[in-house]
Design a protein around this nucleic acid. Structure first.
Lengths: 245, 245
DNA sequence: TAGTGGTCTAGACCACCTA
DNA sequence: AGGTGGTCTAGACCACTAA
């Protein structure tokens, strides 16, 4: 309790060192998601810090979304919210502005040499081979989305042995549960193109009908590229929503 | 100094009431951008509150981006950052993924009864009249965007007297500088449609060519709807980018 | 009723900036 | 040197929750 600051820079403010200390406990699993962390007064005693300082450390972590306070009950480690992680990355909505879970089906999974745009996005050599998933998504209103997804083979070893039926509807929680790969952010670029023969066939539209092309590079919390995907859907039924703040 | 809380709900915590008080002073222009607000100890004296409480009120406003602290100098009202406010709300990019300032020209400004979608977005009665701007934007690569913008007349009084040439390329800083209306967030919905006669003519494309329709509702920091706009551009040259985190 | 977080106070010392 | 914000302490009372 006296040398707990050893790990971090002693020049840092107390509350920041406590913040790191708490984050370490969470990361190590000592304080698991859904469980309360020690009370403020317990932390006060344990680390010999004033309440105000403890509160400040906790405040920052609450702001960052790692902790949740509940008056009268305690302060809890936030359990990663699959819904949230879904709605965070899912931008397509129906006419009422609501998003809902699309059905999805993996058509194939194989090892391939990705196109340059994918290997570049993933930060791999141009001739490195990747896992490629082909996927068809059915949205609530019946519209379709066809996707190609490239994953760095090194981080998803064993994925090709997973039976196609065992893939989850939502891939990011699946990546996390099976391979420990957690998506933290993504960049999407949206363009319009016209459907080639294969795409128009898959989507059930006419040749050269406009399609929306969404290219996404998804990164881990340490900014490592973990996934590149390209999705295409019929432009006519497409609706995309974002909040800017 | 004793009954300053009159305007707000006495049941609210002190620091929240002080926060509103400060926001009012900023909004009224009493504490202008770039200038320091009174020091913490001055606020302590003036409102007869403890320093900690004052600091907490200021903390929240710093988090919201309205104030800026500078150790040893004071706490300042943040001067709106033109670049930031531009790149924050501008999502269209060129093929290299870079955004650049588009030229824009206001074609007309008039008082009109808005379509239901606009009055609903602005939270106005269906027969309330609004200021309507028509605007043409030229992007870096030569592509065009035609926009209709609806503003609640009450908050932008005098706008119709502004000569069209005096409108800024970027409207949000213009709103802020001239009318004290500060945009804090926005929601955009993106769909694809086909060009009608007027649109295809304006954009220089063929009738029924696909166009991108971007509907945006922009809100102030207090969540009041301040602007509704609908932008249309040729789908072929369209490129939209977002970061999700 | 006991314990939790939510709010608030009234000090203290420090690092930094301006003059 | 004097004033500013940055950090930290050591209490107090309240509202809420659970047993």
């Amino acid at each position: 309790m006296s040398d707990w600051k050893a790990g971090s820079d002693a020049r840092l403010p107390l509350y920041q060192r406590l913040r790191e200390e708490i984050m370490d406990r969470i990361a190590s699993g000592e304080w698991p998601p859904g469980e309360p962390i020690p009370t403020e007064s317990e932390l006060t005693r344990r680390y010999n810090i004033a309440v105000g300082t403890v509160r400040r450390a906790i405040d920052t972590l609450v702001n960052e979304g790692l902790l949740e306070r509940s008056q009268g009950r305690g302060t809890f480690v936030r359990r990663p919210d699959f819904d949230a992680s879904f709605f965070r990355f899912f931008r397509q909505v129906n006419a009422e502005g609501e998003a809902s879970v699309p059905d999805s089906r993996i058509l194939s999974a194989s090892l391939q040499t990705p196109p340059p745009v994918a290997s570049k996005a993933l930060g791999l050599a141009h001739d490195a081979s990747c896992i490629c998933l082909e996927r068809l998504r059915t949205l609530e209103d019946g519209s379709l989305l066809t996707e190609k997804i490239w994953l760095p083979a090194a981080r998803f070893s064993g994925l090709l042995k997973v039976p196609l039926e065992e893939f989850d509807n939502l891939l990011y929680p699946f990546y996390e549960a099976r391979f420990g790969q957690r998506i933290g952010s993504a960049r999407e670029t949206l363009t319009i193109a016209s459907a080639d023969a294969i795409t128009s066939d898959t989507l059930g539209i006419a040749l050269n009908d406009p399609v929306v092309v969404i290219e996404r590079t998804a990164l881990g919390y340490d900014q490592t590229p973990l996934e590149y995907r390209c999705s295409m859907g019929a432009a006519a039924t497409f609706r995309y929503q974002i909040e800017i703040s």
